[in-house]
Design a protein around this nucleic acid. Structure first.
Lengths: 345, 345
DNA sequence: TAGAGCCTGGACAACGTTGTCACAGCCGGG
DNA sequence: CCCGGCTGTGACAACGTTGTCCAGGCTCTA
């Protein structure tokens, strides 16, 4: 242990440095550095002495200093909406795996769907000099990232495109997925089909709504305003929205739910109903197959989304890529029963 | 923008520094630092000039250098088992909120239940000089952290206690919870009750098994070996284990599932069965109420677990705490139907 | 045996920031 | 008019590491 407490008050600890190790081992500072980094040019005997000193002092290299010197932090940032949302679990896990394969650590934060907080987080990560940034955007104006991107922060957007800047984005085929889900309901005889989704300000929500409209149009079904409920996200309001479109003079016989949280709430509403109402949801969720009926969903592969985006980020760091690109991943319709119910009423 | 590219090859970008800003604003380096950090002692006019230069150059403070100087990184590390596991979503989210309230960022990684990987991750985080470490242990020997803790890394274990070192730990009352869950089954008339859980090497699994045994003992019911299945975790083996204890000459009439993944698999098995079998699971999970019958669970509050642990970590950083402590949070039995089924067979 | 070449090790600067200190200029009071 | 203090500013060292470069000692060859 170093002999004197010479660090400022603000420090939490008082750690041995390479200098301390060098002194103890009776070698030069740089020799310690070489041993720590496995660089060649150190005799076995010297190396042993250094290792012993490291062991004895409990030395661990200070990566902050290393970063300062080398310029790379070997860490990437992930800004998502909510870590607790089951959709993002597999996504961040996949990102983490890719990062790990590249020897990088993952720093992440939740924007809580708040554009200001997204910006605050993203810029904080830039200040830490993450090598790259994965962003699931909450806001729709990302010009604040321009200086960062110019300065070399590799940036890839996930799940939703960037706003007002040209950047890589990896997302699901929201339009096509919703379209096929709604077409599935239509194929099973439904014409009065409800749509409940998030604010159209959110890109995914807008695209899914568009998919709904396209499918209806394809089938020549005019859409009534009362069938659509937008910007509805908290369970209580979803419940009311569902109940409204299920009552009245011209009730829907099927509902398309714009995301997994909506789907789950709608399932709860339908469970209390006496007549069967068909349901297709966007996003798969655990146990969807165990419900009665099983819930038919348009599934996106969150893991693949994260993996693809992270791959792209690291390829960008390798300098292989140039022009920003938009990568759209296919969705998959999983039929489990709820989407195959015939229209009633 | 700085005039010359003077950074080494290894750098990703070429960012302006305070020196560049100072040069452009025609002031000293330290004055820029003062403006950036909102320190007093700068005239309005000087400040304006500096701000303009910052804007023009797209300067952002390099926190790596700041860290090196100040000693604190304002970041904490979280090592958990699997980010994709729904149990850890709310937990990390809660940790993140607390960190955010303290102006700290969260770095996290998954150990994949592998002790070596846990150690690798934890030490990598220490090398980055995180101020504190939250660990959901995979291994049972944490002496490798001793030098780090001595050096001042605040460390709090979550969900499971540390092995062979004395450290803070925040966990659920696994023994009491399992005991109450099994007692609940006994109270509903069951005597032949199965237990399916993880390897007893894992502390939570061992405690829950102990709770099962205690409850059975309390009721004077001798436990048959065939009723217990330990170290079973992947769905296929859980399925076989469940089927085995449900068949044979002396089948169980109820099952206590040691964690949520087991519970879900058991639900799948029971769904195919003709006769009703009672089920109580440890850990709540989404939609448990929507299944038929609803799944009775012993719920732990993952968010509270994370919040409590993070609070403790930051209080330790404030220097308020001394002796390591063990904090046990209560569990809650949530009855939904599956645990109240009478014994059949 | 001299010179060339290799191997090992260390001195030193640099990375970008912050803390310390000193200095210049100004004010007010004796 | 001088002195002490106060205010705004900047020079400089330090944080702990790595890259560059050079020195000294060795071996090998002519």
């Amino acid at each position: 242990m170093p002999e004197t407490a010479r660090r400022p008050e603000s420090r939490y600890g008082n750690r041995p440095t390479m200098k301390d190790v060098a002194a103890r081992a009776g070698v030069g500072l740089k020799t310690v550095s070489r041993v720590v980094n496995g660089e060649p040019g150190v005799t076995a005997d010297t190396e042993r002495r250094v290792q012993e000193a490291i062991e004895a002092l409990g030395f661990r290299r200070n990566d902050s200093a290393r970063v300062l010197r080398k310029g790379r932090t070997a860490s990437i940032g992930l800004v998502l909406e909510d870590l607790a949302d089951p959709f993002y679990g597999p996504l961040s896990r996949a990102v983490e795996e890719v990062a790990r394969a590249h020897g990088a650590l993952l720093i992440n934060g939740s924007s809580a769907e708040d554009p200001d907080r997204e910006q605050e987080l993203a810029l904080a990560l830039c200040a830490r000099r993450v090598d790259g940034l994965l962003i699931i955007p909450a806001g729709d104006d990302h010009r604040y990232l321009e200086p960062e991107i110019r300065a070399g922060v590799a940036t890839v957007f996930v799940d939703r495109p960037a706003g007002r800047i040209d950047a890589d984005v990896v997302l699901s085929d929201n339009h096509g997925g919703a379209r096929s889900g709604v077409a599935h309901l239509i194929a099973h005889g439904h014409r009065r089909i409800g749509f409940i989704g998030d604010m159209p300000r959110i890109h995914t929500a807008a695209e899914r709504l568009r998919g709904y409209r396209t499918a209806m149009e394809d089938a020549g079904i005019p859409v009534a305003d009362a069938w659509m409920s937008l910007g509805v996200t908290d369970p209580e309001r979803v419940r009311r929205a569902a109940e409204e479109m299920l009552s009245g003079p011209d009730p829907v016989t099927a509902i398309f739910a714009g995301n997994n949280r909506v789907t789950v709430t709608v399932v709860r509403v339908l469970a209390r109903l006496s007549r069967p109402v068909a349901l297709v949801g966007f996003d798969d969720f655990e146990l969807a197959d165990l419900l009665r009926p099983g819930v038919t969903v348009v599934a996106q592969d969150a893991g693949r989304l994260g993996r693809t985006a992270a791959d792209r980020l690291f390829r960008r760091l390798d300098g292989t890529l140039v022009a920003p690109e938009r990568i759209e991943l296919p969705t998959r319709l999983i039929t489990r029963g709820s989407g195959e119910l015939p229209p009633v009423g």
